[in-house]
């Protein structure tokens, strides 16, 4: 079976389900989507995407909606679980069973680990995970890779620092899995309290060259990519703990003086204070451009899974 047809009807639940060959194929397809994103197309005319967001994330949802519209398809869904029968206690499985009658593909976001897998198993139509629990956000990881490749021309050989909250941030989990398919060096920079989960790191141990540290300046001079994450307030049981750590890592123009000239700075957004606004005008700032790459990657996935030409 050729690789394109292997995507037909496939679920995208976890980065772990994707081989390097799969990822490269998706990224190539995403690059092909760039001109189509501008002019629009009829590739998925008559196909319908349902968005089920059990947790608010307007940015991701709008990106999926926009991707589907650009491919000529249609979008239905609900933004808040309270707007549907879920609020009345309907199980996720039953919701999926209902929604699949009206749509060709489901995009789901959920606050529980494993929810996207449950949805994918229940659904007779393909499911894309748009973020579930604290571990998985595969489309974000793919758009991060696509951004790196667009900026640097390659992924192999890059030195990448993941900075900030590595314990709770689901984007970094998926991203580290994604990067483990490439020949890269990763620096995991976080406060002791927010280090990457031990069990997950163990899984990746043999697949990726990494180093942990709490001081960015130990790797700043040699990295090509600095991936900054927010320290999410809602994940802390104790607010005082949050206040203590939130300003540990703030990137400013001064930081850049110690970095390679062509360092790119990425961030899954929304940014709070981790990156000072005076960095926005520098050529190093790639965090706004990242959004655009999200559109390309999501268009690529939708067209591959739904088999549009």
């Amino acid at each position: 079976m050729d690789i394109a047809s292997s995507f037909l009807g496939r679920d995208i639940v976890s980065m772990k389900d994707l081989s390097r060959e799969d990822i490269d194929f998706i990224l190539d397809r995403a690059t092909e989507m760039e001109p189509i994103a501008d002019r629009g197309s009829d590739i998925l005319r008559g196909r319908i995407m349902a968005t089920l967001f059990f947790e608010p994330s307007t940015r991701t949802r709008l990106s999926f909606e926009s991707a589907m519209l650009r491919l000529g398809g249609g979008v239905i869904g609900f933004a808040e679980p309270s707007a549907s029968s879920v609020a009345k206690g309907e199980s996720l499985r039953d919701t999926i069973k209902t929604v699949e009658n009206y749509s060709d593909i489901i995009v789901i976001r959920h606050y529980e680990d494993g929810a996207a897998r449950v949805a994918a198993d229940a659904a007779g139509i393909p499911v894309i995970n748009a973020g579930s629990g604290s571990l998985e956000h595969p489309t974000q990881a793919l758009l991060d890779l696509h951004t790196m490749r667009a900026a640097k021309g390659r992924i192999d050989g890059l030195k990448v620092a993941l900075l900030g909250d590595l314990l709770y941030g689901r984007t970094v989990h998926s991203l580290l899995y994604a990067l483990s398919n490439y020949d890269v060096k990763v620096f995991l920079v976080s406060p002791e309290r927010l280090r990457f989960r031990r069990d997950l790191l163990k899984e990746l141990e043999r697949k990726i060259d990494y180093e942990e540290m709490d001081d960015l300046y130990r790797c700043l001079g040699e990295i090509d990519v600095l991936y900054v994450t927010r320290i999410q307030k809602e994940r802390f049981p104790d607010l005082r703990e949050y206040e203590k750590l939130k300003d540990s890592y703030i990137i400013t123009r001064e930081t850049l003086r110690h970095a390679k000239r062509d360092l790119i700075i990425m961030h899954p957004l929304p940014r709070v204070t981790e990156i000072s606004t005076d960095v926005d005008d520098t050529p190093n700032a790639w965090y706004f451009k990242q959004m655009r790459h999200g559109l390309y990657v999501r268009m690529a996935l939708l067209s591959l899974i739904l088999g549009g030409r």
């Binding site: 501008d38 629009g40 709008l62 650009r70």
Partner: peptide
Amino acid sequence: TIYTPYGLVSA
């Protein structure tokens, strides 16, 4: 021609 933060789309 619908405005989205990711550009305009016909829909």
